[in-house]
Design a protein around this nucleic acid. Structure first.
Lengths: 202, 202
DNA sequence: TGTACATCAGTGAACGCGCGTTCACTGATGTAC
DNA sequence: TGTACATCAGTGAACGCGCGTTCACTGATGTAC
C-alpha cells in the first residue's frame, strides 16, 4: 500500500486516521502488533507526526482500548434493553452481545486485552470505560439474583466466571476458530449463553 | 541477570535451556514476547547458538507450544481418570483441569495461543499435540452424550462452546484477573465448570 | 588402549533493518484589533 | 475587510538500539580400527 498523498499540509483529523490505520493493520495481519512508523506510513505522514496526538505508542493503544470498551458497554446496554432487567433472558442477551461485539470489532477486542494494558491506572479514560463495561455485567447478574432467578452465590465470583466464559467464546471467535460466518458465531454464542444461564439458575 | 558462565565449551542441553529461558522470561515480564538474542544472553551463549537447535524463532515457539499441548492433554486425561467416563463428573473434572493447567503453566499457555501459531501445519508435532488435546475434550463430551446425560445437540458445537468457556476462565486467570491464589482460581474454575455442565445437561 | 578423523555444537563478527523517539524547523490556521 | 501575530500540526533528519539471521571458524566429542 503506497502512502496516500495529501494536498493539504494539515491532515484534518490525524488522530482518528492513526487509530483507523491501526485497526486496519490488525485486521490485515491478523496480529495485534504494529509499529507507529508503519501507521504513519499508511496514513502518509512523517513518522513523528503521530506524537502530536499521542504521548507515545502505549498511549495510542490505550486510546484504542478505551474506544473499544465504550463500544462494548454500548453494545451490552443496547442488547440488554431488549429484555426485562433481572430476567434470565436479560443475561442471555448480555452474553450474546459480548461475543457479538468481539465478532464485529475484532481489532478493538484484541487491543483491549493486550498485556501491556493490564495496568490501566496511567489511563483514566481507559480505566473508566473498562469499569463501566464490567459494571453492566455485574449489575445484570445482581438484578437477576435480586429477582431470585440466579442463585445467591457471591456476585463477584459469578460475574468473573460468566465474564470468563463469554470472553473465552469471544476470543476463540476472534481467533477464527469458529469460522468466518457471523451467523454461525452468533449461534455458538447463543448456545454458550444458554448453557451459561442454566448454570447460573437458582 | 548476568549471563551464566559455563566451564564446558559444549552446553549439554542447550535446547532445553533455551526453552526454559523463554518460559522464565515470560513469567518475569508478564508478556509472551522475547527475543532470541535475549534468551541466548540468559543462557550465556552466543546469539547464534540456538540456531543449532531451532530453525528459527517461530520454530522455537512451536516447540514450546507443542510441549504445552502435551502437558495439557496429560493433565486432562489424568483429571478425567478420577471420574467415570460418560458422566457429568467426568466433564466437570475436564473443565477444572483445563484451568488448572493454565494456572500451573501460564507461560506455556500464552505461547500456545499466540496468533502466529494459529496455522499449525508447518509444525506436525504441534499439530498432533493440539489435536490430541482437542480430542480428549471431544470424546469426553461425546461419551456423556452417549450415556444420555448431555443433550444430543451437534457434538462439535458443544465442544467449541465448552472449550471456549473454560478457555476464557483460564485466560483471565493467567492474566491475573482472579488474583494469585491457586485455591481461589481453582474455586472459580469449579464454579464455572459446574455452571457449564448444568448448561450441557440433557 | 591409542590414534585419526568425522561430526557435532559451539563462537563471534557482521549484515541490513526497522523501530521509538527527539528536535529544530516551517507551513497553515485562528484570533485580536 | 485587512493585517500582525500567536498557536497549532505538520516535516524530515538524526539518535541509538536491539533484533533475526548468516557465515566462516574452532573446540569438544564420538567412532572405527
Amino acid at each position: 500500500m503506497p502512502p496516500r498523498r495529501r494536498n493539504t499540509y494539515h491532515h484534518g483529523d490525524l488522530r482518528r486516521a492513526v487509530i483507523d490505520a491501526a485497526l486496519q493493520a490488525i485486521r490485515e495481519q491478523g496480529s495485534p502488533d504494529f509499529s507507529l512508523r508503519a501507521l504513519a506510513r499508511r496514513v502518509g505522514v512523517a513518522p513523528s507526526a503521530p506524537y502530536r496526538h499521542f504521548e507515545d505508542k502505549r498511549a495510542l493503544l490505550a486510546a484504542i482500548a478505551a474506544e473499544g470498551f465504550r463500544l462494548l458497554a454500548d453494545g451490552l446496554r443496547k442488547a440488554a434493553g431488549t429484555a426485562r432487567p433481572g430476567s434470565l433472558d436479560h443475561l442471555r442477551e448480555l452474553g450474546v452481545a459480548y461475543v457479538r461485539f468481539a465478532a464485529r470489532h475484532p481489532a478493538h477486542f484484541r487491543i483491549m486485552f493486550r498485556p501491556e494494558l493490564a495496568d490501566k491506572t496511567p489511563y483514566p479514560e481507559l480505566l473508566d470505560a473498562a469499569s463501566d463495561s464490567f459494571d453492566v455485567l455485574t449489575s445484570g447478574i445482581r438484578a437477576a439474583q435480586e429477582s431470585g432467578v440466579v442463585r445467591p452465590e457471591e456476585t463477584g465470583r459469578l460475574v468473573r466466571a460468566s465474564w470468563g466464559m463469554v470472553h473465552g467464546i469471544a476470543a476463540l471467535a476472534v481467533a477464527g476458530q469458529f469460522g468466518r460466518s457471523r451467523a454461525k458465531i452468533e449461534a455458538i454464542a447463543r448456545s454458550a449463553s444458554e448453557a451459561l444461564i442454566r448454570g447460573l439458575e437458582a
